[in-house]
């Protein structure tokens, strides 16, 4: 057989095998799962020891050597703590009142969720890291699965894109492929929040021209997509424009979370159905619950994600 013919056959055969593998993987996801359970986990295991050393060195420097502004920071924290305690008391009273009203109106209480902490191992990495993502040190072994909501103390961060055994990839809300069903805090106008890339404002789709939405209004998860629980803060409206050619408003919003500076996140998962009774009623008390993954205690969880 002549050489050019041989090369052509090799190229065609290679393309055929490649496309077959690609199509098979799109249908089954086996190769994606394999790479998540090997490549992502290995990378996470390689990064963690170095990250630990780096954090310890930084911590040592900041705690024992670089003490500039410590007194000022301490005073500020004491003031902030006093303010938060007062706010917490008011919110707890409001929450109890809301629960009573809900019961009064006969609303079915929403499924309650549990939080588990995770440390950010890396942000976008490698040549195939084309989407705005971050890697966290919790995976399938800790009960993490795809589409699990990810939040921080400031608001929604995104959702789990892929889960390995000991690490997962989180798609950030700023990515152009992220979509979150939202509702305005005051005017209760629903819409679909989409990212436009890091550093770009978020945009709200499908908000009717006659809908009421104000700049500065907080956008909350509506719970309609079935991924996020209802009522989590996501973003704040920064600009509302009416278009002459579109049936929808042009709404821009800014995320509440600084995704570039995230070091720890919370993974939300639905708690198993609790039996009815006084203890069950206690678990329905609103507010963040002690963060721990299934199969681990809160103490173990706290040890996994140290405070900074």
């Amino acid at each position: 057989m002549k050489k050019p013919k041989k090369i052509a056959i090799v190229i065609v055969a290679g393309l055929f095998v490649y496309l077959s593998l690609y199509t098979w993987n799109l249908r089954t996801g086996h190769l994606d799962a394999l790479s998540s359970h090997t490549g992502l986990d290995i990378a996470s295991l390689v990064i963690r020891p170095g990250q630990w050393v780096l954090e310890k060195a930084t911590d040592f420097w900041e705690r024992y050597i670089h003490l500039v502004g410590l007194k000022q920071q301490n005073d500020d924290l004491a003031r902030e703590n006093a303010r938060l305690v007062r706010k917490n008391m008011i919110l707890a009273a409001e929450a109890r009142s809301a629960e009573r009203l809900e019961r009064l109106l006969g609303f079915t209480p929403p499924d309650h969720w549990e939080f588990s902490g995770a440390r950010v191992v890396a942000h976008r990495m490698g040549p195939t890291g084309s989407l705005a993502t971050l890697a966290v040190d919790r995976g399938g072994a800790s009960g993490v699965s795809a589409d699990m909501p990810v939040v921080s103390l400031d608001g929604v961060v995104g959702r789990v894109l892929r889960a390995g055994a000991v690490a997962s990839t989180v798609l950030l809300l700023t990515d152009a492929n992220s979509r979150i069903a939202i509702i305005g805090e005051h005017n209760r106008t629903p819409g679909m929040l989409a990212g436009q890339g890091y550093g770009e404002p978020l945009t709200v789709h499908f908000m009717n021209l006659n809908a009421v939405i104000d700049p500065g209004e907080l956008l909350l998860t509506s719970g309609l997509s079935g991924i996020f629980p209802k009522g989590l803060p996501v973003a704040r409206v920064v600009r509302v424009r009416r278009s002459d050619i579109s049936l929808f408003l042009t709404v821009e919003a800014e995320p509440l979370v600084d995704v570039a500076g995230l070091e720890e996140v919370l993974l939300l998962h639905q708690a198993p159905e609790a039996p009815d009774g006084p203890e069950a009623a206690q678990t329905k008390e609103p507010g963040p619950k002690p963060a721990h993954a299934p199969g681990t205690t809160a103490r173990e969880e706290a040890a996994g994600v140290p405070e900074h």
Binding site: Y18, Y22, L31, T38, A43, P127, G129, S130, R162
Partner: peptide, 15 residues
């Protein structure tokens, strides 16, 4: 290949 596919976020095939 497994490492770059696993740490990335595109469907398998790049590597």
């Amino acid at each position: 290949m497994l490492i770059i596919e696993g740490t990335g976020n595109l469907p398998f095939g790049y590597g």
